[in-house]
Amino acid sequence: MTAHAEPLHAVGGHEEHHEIEIPYTVHARPDTGVYNGKLGIWLFLASEVMLFGALFSTLILLRTSAPTWPRGFEELNIPLATINTFNLIASSVTVVMAWANLRLGKLKRAKLFLGITLLCGFIFMGIKAVEYGTKFQHHHYPSTNNFFATYFVMTGLHGLHVLGGMVVFTYLLLTADKWYEKHRDQYTNRVEITGLYWHFVDLVWIFLFPTLYLL
């Protein structure tokens, strides 16, 4: 390695700062066929499938082993959960709309769709808070029985994922102008992979809703 190539090295009494280049944030890597961020998010989602899969597996184990198990519709609020299902599905559409508009060069519209997605996240968490509040009022806690233990753990973990997505969407909204102007393709990719995560969160809810509430 030559002295020229060393990124952080004192030259002539002055500290030279060369920022480290992160490769393949826009273009596909020739050997993988995708840009690094996309492969990264899919590997992360694979681990997430295992996380939620373990919880679903636990739920099946507990439910099939229990002498009695309440039906979800007897204990939980179906109308509120239905609203949340529509809400989350709508937010998945607004994310892909934001991404599509970025590809069309319409940043203002994309920001509007990202904002609606964030709003959907707030509505989801608000409804969840109402649901949890009602349960606590009726003295239903995770320690009450296995049904409520799995309900609180699974919806709680899912809620944390929604919260995580909302934090990223807030960041994407706040930095949209700066990033889109300077690194348009990279920003578009960031919205795409955040969208992939958000769709996964939607996907988990699509299975949680009938499993916990309707059966």
């Binding site: 390695m1 190539a5 990124p7 060369h18 480290i20 992160i22 273009h27």
Partner: peptide, 26 residues
């Protein structure tokens, strides 16, 4: 720094490329 930043020859090359690693995107 991102890959669509203004080019500056030494810095845009990742260390693995300088050491003979896989070629980086232009």
């Amino acid at each position: 720094m991102t890959d669509n930043a203004a080019p500056h020859p030494p810095a845009h090359m990742a260390p693995d490329q300088q050491a003979g690693g896989p070629p980086q995107e232009p």
